[in-house]
């Protein structure tokens, strides 16, 4: 799918968690890593898996399945840690599979609050229409409860 890149275009990393497609703004994604050994950290919420060593840096890792109350899944060859860097946080998110980097134009992005009304869906900031496939863009501040 070739698309010309315009000023209004945004890029997302799309990934899969269970049955659903999610997206993260490429601007906050630092890298995508293979699963590696994770040291659990006591006294943290159950969805915080612990910390891992990414090339000498200590990065906290969050299990998004647990966060979204989905069933656990064994890590496999497709499991990835998406390292995000935003607002001074560096956090890794465990996802089932990283698909692609997608470029979407503005008219295909809708604010989620106009569509999903349930409070439990607050952490979704935008819904991206990718030729009829819908991708849920995450608001990490809300996803990870970082608001004061």
């Amino acid at each position: 799918m070739e698309k010309k890149s315009n000023l209004g275009d945004k890029q997302f990393i799309s990934f899969i968690l269970g049955e659903e497609n999610f997206g993260l703004d490429v601007m906050i994604v630092e890298s995508v890593e293979r699963m590696s050994s994770i040291t659990p950290v006591p006294k943290t919420p159950n969805y915080v898996l612990g910390v891992t060593n990414i090339r000498g840096d200590i990065i906290p890792v969050v299990n998004l399945r647990k966060r979204f109350d989905m069933d656990d899944k064994e890590y496999d060859d497709d499991t990835r840690i998406v390292i995000c860097n935003f607002d001074g946080y560096r956090i890794g998110l465990v996802v089932d599979l990283v698909k692609d980097v997608i470029t979407v134009s503005e008219e295909n992005i809708q604010a989620s609050e106009d569509i999903l009304k349930d409070r439990k869906n607050d952490f979704i900031s935008e819904i991206i229409d990718l030729d009829g496939n819908y991708i849920l863009a995450l608001d990490l501040i809300k996803t990870l409860d970082l608001g004061e």
Partner: peptide, 25 residues
């Protein structure tokens, strides 16, 4: 440092990387 996200865990002051690459608190 454990970074901003885990900064308020009181009983852990930081982390270190062991010889085998694993993290120890």
């Amino acid at each position: 440092s454990l970074g901003k996200y885990l900064s308020d865990i009181k009983i852990i002051s930081g982390a270190t990387i062991l010889g085998d690459g694993r993290v120890a608190l």
